[in-house]
Nucleic acid binder design. Structure first.
Lengths: 199, 199
DNA sequence: TATAAATTTCAGAAATTACTGAAATCCGCG
DNA sequence: CGCGGATTTCAGTAATTTCTGAAATTTATA
């Protein structure tokens, strides 16, 4: 049924999925749909990947929750069919957006929360400093991401293609550096016999 | 020993780690070191996180393999001490570099390999098309990443801060769009009764 | 080289996560 | 309404991953 190429691709994405915290089956189903021109129904996925019907059902739900797969219907067929978006840029945008939503945003929230509830009067200065720095870094990066995300794909590709050539253009805008990352120094405290300290 | 803030931060990063395919303990150790001004030795980590010595040993090895943690030595002390880099940008660069090396590069290699071994004479045209597209997309993105990575941090921050303001400058460079992502159309084949097809 | 501290290895236990089959639910249509 | 196919749920099992303690190894120095 599946060509050798498809097999290998699917297996690769199954393995890759693991490294991404996505389970193997989910990765494989995604890969299968990605390579498939026509939408597939659950039964077809069962056949092609040799996994149980219930596993397919649950995995598809997961993929839909990530908005990586969408459901279609075919006239005169009660079954649900599934596809991935045809446009790869749509896929990239969704992936980044979802990971941001699930991983970055909650972390930023947590960091700000920790800063709020901190006694403020210097209890554990270094840790608070680091938490603050990390929060600012994340905000810089997500701010930039939001900007990029607003661009239409064509513009985005232009920017990406320019790459470092952009560096030349930089001088023309104000050279404002708002944050001071990299300027913090750590006092390399030697901490001898620190094991028995206040334990 | 650990302040409440540190506790929460560490627990958060343990949980986050899971979503990243990194195990909880590894995430927690990293978080602990990140917040710690002074380098810590294995025994101190054992105490603060209440995990076994062997677990600490293995997790530190993993973190070192990722180059996210480095080993220091203190005069007159035989034990190994560990720290995270003080500069957050160094951390970001390492993270991205490592994930690229472990996840993106092997995938690109696999895609190219599949393209090579494909019968070329149109066996399974659509899948091959998609594999090609995906390869090109990844190359565009990693090419851009390489460019950015070459920039010194100060320049990089400038670029990130400018964000979409850059869009205005774009017109000044040649508006060459080398790839045609998003231009492919899928024949939305209806595939009735496709379940019994060639099975 | 002997010794003692520090670290690593590794086999098995514990915990977590993934997967299945059976039953329940849903849903369009006669 | 009730039939039949499609889908979902879920409890139990399988598989995988994580973690530990004990033993082995490494290493600095006496």
């Amino acid at each position: 049924m599946l060509s050798n190429t498809e097999q290998e691709f699917i297996i690769h994405f199954g393995e890759m999925g693991s490294k991404w915290g996505i389970n193997r089956t989910v990765g494989q189903i995604y890969a299968l749909l990605f390579l498939s021109e026509a939408p597939l129904n659950a039964e077809q996925i069962v056949e092609r990947l040799s996994i149980s019907r219930s596993n397919v059902s649950m995995s598809l739900k997961e993929l839909q929750a990530w908005e990586l797969v969408r459901m279609n219907h075919v006239q005169g067929d009660r079954r649900d069919y599934f596809t991935t978006p045809e446009d790869l840029w749509t896929i990239v945008r969704t992936l980044v957006e979802q990971r941001k939503k699930r991983e970055i945003d909650p972390t930023l929230t947590k960091l700000r929360e920790l800063q709020m509830q901190a006694p403020a009067d210097g209890e554990n200065g270094y840790a608070m400093e680091r938490i603050g720095e990390l929060g600012e870094l994340i905000e810089l990066l997500t701010g930039w991401y939001d900007d990029m995300n607003r661009l239409e794909t064509e513009r985005l590709v232009q920017l990406l293609t320019l790459g470092s050539k952009l560096q030349g253009l930089i001088g023309k805008a104000e050279g404002v550096i708002p944050f001071s990352f990299g300027g913090k120094r750590r006092t390399a405290q030697t901490s001898k016999t620190s094991d028995g300290g206040a334990a």
